[in-house]
Simulated assay, not measured.
Amino acid sequence: MSVHIDIAGLRPERVAVVPSPLAELGMALHALSEPGHHPGLQGWVTGVTAGLDPHLADRMCEADFLWRTIFSDLFMPYAGIPGGALPGATLAEELDLLDKLTDEQFVDSALEFSCAMPYGVGPSPLVDAELGRRALELAAARGPQQEQFSKLLLSDPPRIRAWLRQFLQDCDEAFFGQTWSRLRHQLTADARHKTDLLHRKGLAEALTAVSPAVVLDEAAGEITVDKLTVGRTAARDGALLLVPTSLGWPHLSVLYRPGWLPVLHYPVGSPELAAPPSVQQLALRMTALSHPVRMRICRYVARSAYTTSELAQALDMTAPEISRHLGVLKKADLITTRRRGRYVQHQLDIAVVARLGSDFLEGILR
């Protein structure tokens, strides 16, 4: 599972690395709605929430499905502008770009989260009555809030567009303007660094610096982003956009809406991103930990280093049986081994297991 971007014919000068205040506002709203996704922002979230006007806080809940899951493509309107556009230097400039999207583009993007409409299901629900009815059915299944929003969206797009623009402007005045003035210098510096890498060492080096989860296959003319989702797009008009975010870790997002410019929205400034596991490696680890015998082995080697024969004795199994289970755990990089004289000892990598989930770790340490 991954997202693929066809970059056949893409020239280096058509790759842009540019911060986006509107995308960062989208991520700020996401962090405020889902603080559990962003434990490193706890202080910022607490400070903003404490000072938030109650009326604005209520309005923030009216359409939070546009940014709670992650955030809607509406926060990157430049990707949908015919002929291409770059993010603006200010939020006001990007809100002007949002106004330039057609009603069909705006509605399609908003429906993605209000009623889980997937990319490329057909013509816009604004012009296809059957698809519009289907969108309302899906929205109703998600709750009355989404149903009401989707009805207004389909019946009166200008009203929703005006509401969203005013809401984003009010967020900027209430808290985001101050946040952006602090973050934009870091994001500009990162964009400058990635652009320099692109010019001096090429696209592959720049993408590796974005994230090890982003890989360029130059022979195939394709970028692969390792994610638990499936998608495919092409560099529209021979262009690709990279947008850094300071509030976004651990999210590495890809905009691959048909007809829109592909965008990689990547987090900066988090050491945890140094070596994220691949989806394949995550699957290996979850499979390795799902077996009851291997869970029992983890219980022992979490506390101390054990040899194969010691584990065989403790679990009343044969050494070859233990070796096979250890092999699965080793392949998933869940245990480390070290030689002490004639003995080889095995121990659980607590840091790796902790990243998978505290419930499992607490269970084997109980």
Rank of each mutant, 00 (worst) to 15 (best):
L203P: 14
A204T: 13
S124N: 00
D128G: 04
L152N: 03
R134E: 13
Q166F: 05
Q186L: 13
R161H: 06
T179D: 04
W163K: 02
L154G: 02
A140F: 04
L183T: 05
V210L: 03
V127Q: 03
L136Y: 07
T195H: 14
S124K: 03
K151Y: 00
A140M: 09
L136K: 05
P212R: 14
R134K: 10
W163R: 07
S211Q: 02
A135N: 11
R165P: 00
Q146R: 09
V230E: 10
H199I: 06
R184C: 14
G177F: 07
A129F: 08
F176I: 08
V214Y: 07
D226F: 09
S150M: 00
C171A: 13
T195N: 10
T224N: 04
R200N: 11
T229R: 10
G120L: 12
C171R: 05
E130G: 03
K227D: 01
M117H: 02
L187N: 06
Q169V: 14
Q178C: 01
F175Q: 09
P158Y: 14
G202Y: 14
S124Q: 01
L154I: 04
L216H: 14
R182Y: 06
E222S: 13
L126E: 03
L183S: 04
E222L: 15
G177W: 07
K227H: 09
Q186C: 08
L136E: 06
K151E: 02
